Simulated assay, not measured.
Amino acid sequence: MRRRRQESRWIHRWSRWLVAGIALIGALGTGYLTIAKLTGGGACPTEGCDRVLSSPWGTVFGQPLTLFGFLAYGTMLAMAVAPLFVNVDKNKALRQKLETWTWPLMFMLASAMLVFSGYLMTVLAFELQAVCPYCIGSALFALSMFVIILLGNRWDDLGQIAFIGLIVGIVTIVATLAVYAPINAAGSPNADVAGQAGPPITTASGPAEVALANHLKDIGATMYGAWWCPHCHDQKQLFGAEAAQAFNYVECAEDGQNPQPDLCRAKPEITGFPTWEINGEFYSGTQSLARLAELSGYSGPTNFQR
């Protein structure tokens, strides 16, 4: 009994520091991914991570999902350390008040993060069928914080805490399904074609973008890419939804729509995605529309929107 009480006191004493440490690591990771995504830099060391971040599930309200992860981890970190910086000898009442208020809030946030992470793990396993170390790590962080918060405080009423966790879980899963409902409901031009299509193109095409796309098609220029590739999506976003359907595109991922992986492998010049083949020359990486116009000898309107 004495040994059990000592273990209990230990977890109670260090629980906030443990949660703060996990939240700090999570905030640094999601912060890095958010900056890399917003600046167009390479973020993920594996193909699976790129698939997740460039998929429809990688964006919420037009912003990278990692941004919301950063905000969640940052909020958890702030709540975990807030009472620790109050001198208990000088202001015991304030510290006690912060302890009282932040514990249930931390539990609610950890519950929401755990449920949301569980949903994303399901998507990762059954929809994207990819291995994303960042995503798995984040889910483990959420689980760890949930367990530490649950065991690290002397809860007066465990039944009430269980009820709060249940309500938060239901609200979180309903809100998550509502946010991601357009992914399954949205009708893309290739919705009836088997295979992964990648995130939808959300930008509009202007006359100049359409004219350039038609010119590229007429001269036989081809873009080689993969549905999970974020830079391929960025390239199509520059053209806009209408123009992106006009030029020649070859899907190199075997699980994409109308894939032609053998054709891609037969061209050793393709070392990354996207790669453009224009007049027998290969150009790797996302190209500006002005650059594509120059490379292809385009002479039409150049008042591109992006």
Results as ranks from 00 to 15, higher is better:
residue 34 T to G: 12
residue 34 T to M: 11
residue 34 T to S: 10
residue 35 I to Q: 05
residue 35 I to M: 03
residue 36 A to V: 13
residue 38 L to I: 12
residue 39 T to A: 07
residue 40 G to P: 04
residue 41 G to T: 10
residue 41 G to A: 15
residue 42 G to H: 13
residue 42 G to M: 06
residue 43 A to Y: 03
residue 44 C to R: 03
residue 45 P to T: 14
residue 45 P to C: 09
residue 47 E to K: 06
residue 48 G to A: 07
residue 50 D to E: 14
residue 50 D to Y: 06
residue 54 S to C: 00
residue 55 S to H: 04
residue 56 P to F: 09
residue 57 W to G: 03
residue 58 G to F: 01
residue 59 T to N: 05
residue 63 Q to D: 11
residue 63 Q to G: 06
residue 63 Q to W: 15
residue 65 L to A: 11
residue 65 L to R: 00
residue 66 T to C: 05
residue 66 T to W: 01
residue 67 L to E: 08
residue 67 L to Q: 09
residue 67 L to K: 07
residue 69 G to N: 05
residue 69 G to D: 01
residue 70 F to W: 13
residue 72 A to E: 00
residue 74 G to R: 03
residue 74 G to P: 06
residue 76 M to E: 11
residue 77 L to P: 01
residue 77 L to R: 03
residue 78 A to Q: 04
residue 79 M to L: 11
residue 79 M to I: 13
residue 81 V to C: 03
residue 82 A to S: 09
residue 82 A to V: 03
residue 83 P to T: 02
residue 84 L to D: 00
residue 87 N to P: 00
residue 90 K to P: 06
residue 91 N to R: 07
residue 91 N to W: 09
residue 92 K to M: 11
residue 93 A to F: 09
residue 93 A to I: 08
residue 93 A to R: 08
residue 94 L to A: 14
residue 94 L to R: 15
residue 96 Q to G: 12
residue 97 K to A: 13
residue 97 K to T: 15
residue 98 L to R: 05
residue 99 E to N: 11
residue 103 W to A: 15
residue 106 M to A: 04
residue 106 M to G: 04
residue 106 M to Q: 09
residue 112 A to R: 10
residue 113 M to G: 14
residue 113 M to T: 11
residue 113 M to Q: 07
residue 115 V to Y: 03
residue 115 V to K: 00
residue 116 F to Q: 01
residue 118 G to Q: 05
residue 119 Y to S: 04
residue 120 L to Y: 07
residue 120 L to C: 11
residue 120 L to W: 09
residue 121 M to Q: 08
residue 122 T to D: 12
residue 123 V to T: 02
residue 124 L to E: 10
residue 124 L to I: 04
residue 126 F to K: 11
residue 127 E to Y: 09
residue 128 L to T: 05
residue 130 A to C: 01
residue 131 V to Q: 01
residue 131 V to M: 10
residue 132 C to S: 02
residue 133 P to E: 11
residue 133 P to M: 05
residue 134 Y to M: 11
residue 134 Y to V: 07
residue 135 C to P: 10
residue 136 I to L: 14
residue 136 I to G: 11
residue 137 G to R: 08
residue 140 L to E: 15
residue 141 F to Q: 04
residue 142 A to M: 08
residue 142 A to E: 11
residue 142 A to N: 13
residue 142 A to V: 07
residue 146 F to E: 00
residue 146 F to M: 09
residue 146 F to K: 09
residue 147 V to G: 10
residue 147 V to N: 01
residue 148 I to F: 06
residue 149 I to L: 13
residue 149 I to H: 06
residue 151 L to T: 13
